[in-house]
C-alpha cells in the first residue's frame, strides 16, 4: 500500500490538472482545430480585440470589486460578532446560504427583484447582480475571518478594555489589525466567487450587464471557439494566483 498510495495520488492530481493544462497548451495553438500546428498568440490577440469580451470583463470587474468590498465589510463585522458570542440562527442561515443550490438562489432572487421592482419601476442591471453577489459571498467571508479570529487570543482585547479602550477602539486598534491577513484572504475569495459566478448572475442580469462568465458560457455552447481557450487560460491563471495568495494569507 505504501507504494500504491503515491501512484494513486499522482493519478488524481493528474485528473485535477491535466484538463486545465491541455486547455492552456492549446490556447497557443496556431490552428483553429484541435491538432497542434505550432505556437501562436493569435487567440490572445483575438480575445483582446473582441469588444464584447472587453466590455463583459469590465462589467465583471466592477461587480466583483463592489460586491467584494461590501461583503468583506459586512462579513468581517459579522464574523467578529459571532466570535464574541455565537448565534445559532445566524450561523444556520450562513450554512444554509452556502448549500442552497445556485439555481434556486438565482430564480428566487429573480422572482423577488421582479416583484419588488414592479412597485419601484426599476430594471434588472449591474445593481441587481451586485446585490446578488453580496448575498452569496458574505458566508465565505464569515467562514474565513471566523477561522482567523479563532486562532486569536481573546485576552489581548480584554487587556485593551482594562486599559480603558472602548469596545470600538479595542476592535479597531487591536483585533482588526491582527486579523488583517484573514480579512484580505476572505476578500480575495469573495472576489473569486463573484468574478466566476455564472448561474445566479445570468438569472438577475439585465440587458446591459453581461458578465465575462456569461459570454464564455454562450461561446462554449455555440461550439468550438479557440478564443474561449485563451480567455479561459487567462482566467485560470489570474484567479489561481489570487487563490494561492489567499491560501498563503490564511496560513500566516
Amino acid at each position: 500500500m505504501k507504494r500504491l498510495l503515491p501512484l494513486y495520488a499522482v493519478a488524481v492530481y493528474a485528473f485535477f490538472y491535466l484538463p486545465l493544462a491541455t486547455l492552456a497548451v492549446f490556447s497557443f495553438n496556431a490552428s483553429r482545430f484541435t491538432l497542434w500546428e505550432g505556437f501562436s498568440w493569435r487567440w490572445y490577440a483575438a480575445a483582446f480585440a473582441d469588444a464584447q469580451l472587453i466590455e463583459a470583463t469590465w462589467n465583471s470587474l466592477v461587480i466583483a470589486v463592489v460586491a467584494t468590498a461590501v461583503s468583506t465589510a459586512i462579513g468581517t463585522l459579522c464574523a467578529y460578532g459571532l466570535w464574541k458570542r455565537g448565534s445559532a440562527p445566524l450561523t444556520g442561515s450562513l450554512y444554509l446560504s452556502l448549500v442552497t443550490p445556485e439555481i434556486v438562489m438565482g430564480i428566487a432572487l429573480l422572482a423577488f427583484f421582479q416583484w419588488v421592482f414592479r412597485f419601484l419601476g426599476i430594471q434588472l442591471g449591474l445593481h441587481t447582480v451586485i446585490l446578488a453577489h453580496v448575498a452569496f459571498s458574505i458566508a465565505y467571508v464569515v467562514v474565513v475571518v471566523l477561522a482567523r479570529l479563532r486562532t486569536m487570543d481573546a485576552a489581548l482585547e480584554e487587556a485593551a478594555l482594562d486599559l480603558g479602550a472602548t469596545e470600538w477602539q479595542a476592535f479597531r486598534k487591536v483585533t482588526l489589525p491582527m486579523i488583517g491577513p484573514g480579512v484580505a484572504a476572505a476578500a480575495m475569495l469573495a472576489f473569486t466567487v463573484s468574478f466566476d459566478d455564472y448561474v445566479i448572475t445570468s438569472m438577475v442580469a439585465g440587458v446591459d450587464s453581461e458578465t465575462l462568465p456569461m459570454v464564455i458560457y454562450a461561446m462554449a455552447r455555440r461550439g468550438a471557439n479557440p478564443v474561449v481557450n485563451s480567455i479561459s487560460t487567462m482566467i485560470v491563471v489570474a484567479l489561481g494566483v489570487m487563490v494561492l495568495v489567499s491560501e498563503r494569507l490564511r496560513e500566516t
Partner: peptide
Amino acid sequence: PFWTSFLV
C-alpha cells in the same frame, strides 16, 4: 483549482 472558475 477548486476555487478557480467552475465554468472554465
